[in-house]
Amino acid sequence: MLSVLTDNWELFVDGFWTTLRLFLIAGVLSLALGTVLAAFRVSPVPALRAIGTGYVNTLRNTPLTLVFAFLVFGAPKMEISLPTFFWSAVVALTVYTSAFVCEIVRSGVNTVPPGQAEAARSVGMTFMQVLGIVVLPQAFRAIVPPLTSVMIALLKNTTIAAGFSVAEAGAIPAVMAERGENQVATLVWITVGFLILIIPLVFLQRWAERRTAVA
């Protein structure tokens, strides 16, 4: 059992390193894009709201595999070229995940009483200040738990990239099969790898929840 891992150590390390990079880059980008989209959806400008809503409704209802396929096969035909399959995967994961992040941030914003934003507008804050200084900090507590779930889903969704020539952890089984290694042991080790990556997320959530549990 252990030898399955040790004999193919480099394959596992390379695979999970790619998974981790995919996850971290797409995670940070989708947090940023999702928050911007949520700002669109609660903004006073109707055109921005429409863009936000259209984006979310489209991306949230499209299977992730299709998003990948579009970026890997479709985008080059439209003369949009991404440098590598890795970056195509980052973009696919980001555009998909940010739709979910947007909805979480938006519903978090809706948990903050409207009087808070009105008071902030009344002292002369701009829309961005109202959101950044008064509303989002108060929405944070409601945002953390569902956001952790979406981040865990993102981590697992990175395995779809294997189907599009990215050598992440999800691509390990195929290589192991070629090498004639035990498939069950391989899958067990991959599961262990994902658990190890998820644990810090769970701790991060606990920490964030404790930090925001003030009066």
Partner: peptide
Amino acid sequence: SEGKALAKLRADVGMVFQSFNLFAH
């Protein structure tokens, strides 16, 4: 009607609400 100019104007108009609306955090 919107944007920075409106925010600037609101800074000159105080508002006190029935439900106080102090920033809770």
